[in-house]
Computed example of a mutant assay.
Amino acid sequence: MKKLPVLIFACLLFTVSAFAQTKDEKDVAAAVEFMRKAMVDGDRANLTKLAADDLSYGHSSGKIQDKKEFVEAIASGASDFVTIDLTDQTIKVAGNTAIVRHKLSAQTNDGGKPGSTVLGIMLVFQKQKGAWKLLARQAYKLPVQ
């Protein structure tokens, strides 16, 4: 009977540690939130700061943009995100690389035309000079439910 409290404590400790984020995972999650906010705000400086120089930004349509094209599309309002909600996010860090997956739901206003989209997203971040930079992004269409 004396071993039961120890067993329960060990199970709780294992459960909590299994779901705890590492410092790098927390930093990557913060970079994702920084990106989400910069995209909604159309903040050229923050988008430029976040994106790696070698960015490859893929859309669900198959269109690929480099850093300059990505920043300009968002900052100019050509690609205008009114809201972005991210759900079902996972983060996997391997050395100086992090893979983020989530579901993106957004309200848009591209070219003054209101719209909405729901996409699957995979992001690749790379730690460069101590900061997590967006190196690659690929959006994909989700099955209709």
Rank of each mutant, 00 (worst) to 15 (best):
Q128L: 15
T108M: 03
I99A: 07
V124I: 12
V118L: 10
P114F: 08
L119C: 03
G62T: 08
D43F: 06
A131Q: 13
I84M: 12
L104E: 15
K49P: 02
N96C: 00
V82N: 02
V124Q: 06
D88I: 12
S105D: 12
S60Y: 01
E72D: 14
G115F: 06
Q107Y: 09
K133A: 00
Y57M: 05
V71E: 04
E72P: 09
D88T: 10
A78W: 03
K49H: 01
D53P: 04
D43W: 11
N109L: 11
A73Y: 02
D54V: 12
T87I: 14
A38K: 02
T83V: 02
I84E: 07
K63P: 00
P114T: 03
L119V: 14
S56D: 07
A38S: 13
S61P: 03
G115S: 08
G62V: 11
G62Y: 02
K133V: 01
N109D: 06
K133G: 00
H59V: 06
V40C: 01
N46P: 07
L55D: 04
I74E: 00
K129R: 11
Q126P: 00
K37R: 14
G112P: 02
T83I: 05
L55K: 00
S105A: 15
S105R: 06
G112L: 02
Q89C: 04
M39V: 12
S105I: 15
H102D: 15
K113A: 10
I91H: 05
G58Q: 06
T117G: 13
Q65W: 02
G112N: 02
A78T: 13
Q126C: 06
I99N: 12
S116I: 08
V82C: 10
Q89W: 04
Q126F: 00
Q89P: 02
T83N: 01
G95Y: 06
L86E: 09
V124G: 01
V71A: 06
L119P: 01
F125A: 05
